[in-house]
Amino acid sequence: MKRIGLLLLLLVFASSSVLAQNKVLSLDGDGDYVQIPASVWFNGDLTIEAWVYVKEYRSWSRLIDFGNGADRDNVLVTLTREATGIPGLHIVKSGGLESSTALELDNWTHIAFTLKGNSSSLFINGHAVGQGNFASPPRDVERQKNFIGRSNWRNDDAQAMFDEIRIWNLARSATEIQDAMNTSLSGDEKGLLGYWNFDNGTAEDLTANGHDGELKGDAQIVASPPSLVMANRITNLGHQFEFDVSIQNAAEGDTLAFDLTYDPLLLQVDRVTKNDATTSWQEPKINHHKGVISLVQLSHSRVISRFQSKLVTITFQSLQTGQSQVRIKQPQLIKADGRHKSVEVVAATIKAFPQPI
């Protein structure tokens, strides 16, 4: 789903497209989780990766927690340290590696942790953002209490959606993570121990290892709702910067229209350009006085990747220091068959600081 930076995220599922079959695990944070069968799972090098959509920073909530109870051979990925939104990889009695920045709420993000020997790396949306060392690799023992979205401690359950969860017994390289994060796997890749993408409506393990998950509580597998989301941006006074508008999980043939609003006292639009996923459009109308960019008849007819493709890039220049809300107004999505789909939106903030001395 999902790339770091300035993203306008649109999740669309269409019955007429193969992309319409993409489904995700949805957990409401109240007793929902997936139980995974017992196995050793970890005893040396590893990679744990997934697309995550965090709805709330629930204290110490998990992507996965595989172990034998609290503080017993656990290997776990947290979505948030306490309620900070800082994700991390933790190996009990060996150490931890955390991100320096929080995961965006209501935003699809790809996270991946690797361990090679005692050296660990963290990747956000395919980019290496952290490194650290563990005292030792995980112990070679069978782990019997293995959960997606739940802790072996008395921490909060995850309120989130997950997709493309993959566990490997090798450390994937940055290139390997980047090349495969926007596509589905066959299930027979070397070193792949467990793979859950939920597209068939179950938590079936798509490898030959048979680690099928069991939905617990009110855990559901759903088509992710259409939503427009923008990430926040920090810049300096007088700087020119690009703002990418991307579409995620889109079906070919969709037509989009929306207004993008901003504070014209703080920001100036220099230009708007269409990207590869937009095969045609009506030239944008920019009202510099009111701070409105009207984008209509954006024809999305090329799916660049399964999860995300850029639609347009807006080049802004910061005019004053301060904070501007950037919002999506009057969003419309029209399917190839003429049906209209509602679209959820989330605002973003652009902050401009004085030039560094």
Rank of each mutant, 00 (worst) to 15 (best):
L260H: 09
L260N: 02
T261N: 05
T261S: 09
T261R: 03
T261G: 11
Y262C: 05
Y262V: 10
Y262K: 09
Y262F: 15
D263Y: 09
D263Q: 10
P264Q: 07
P264L: 06
P264I: 04
P264Y: 04
P264F: 01
L265D: 15
L265N: 12
L265K: 12
L265R: 06
L265T: 13
L265C: 02
L265P: 07
L266V: 08
L266D: 05
L267T: 15
L267M: 08
L267Q: 06
Q268R: 11
Q268C: 08
V269R: 03
V269F: 09
D270R: 14
D270E: 15
R271K: 12
R271H: 01
R271D: 04
R271A: 09
V272L: 05
V272D: 00
T273W: 01
T273D: 14
T273Y: 03
T273C: 04
K274N: 12
K274Q: 13
N275S: 13
N275I: 14
N275G: 05
D276R: 15
D276Q: 14
D276W: 14
D276F: 11
D276C: 03
A277M: 14
A277V: 11
A277N: 12
A277F: 12
T278L: 15
T278A: 15
T278S: 13
T278Y: 09
T279G: 15
T279N: 12
T279Q: 15
T279Y: 07
S280I: 05
S280D: 14
S280R: 07
W281P: 01
Q282P: 00
Q282C: 00
Q282H: 06
Q282D: 14
Q282L: 06
E283Y: 02
E283F: 00
E283W: 00
P284Q: 10
P284L: 10
P284G: 10
P284W: 01
K285F: 04
I286V: 15
I286L: 03
N287A: 07
N287S: 12
H288P: 01
H288A: 13
H288R: 11
H289I: 07
H289E: 11
H289A: 08
K290H: 09
K290G: 01
G291Q: 01
G291Y: 01
G291T: 06
V292R: 05
V292G: 01
V292P: 07
V292F: 00
I293S: 03
S294E: 10
L295K: 04
L295E: 01
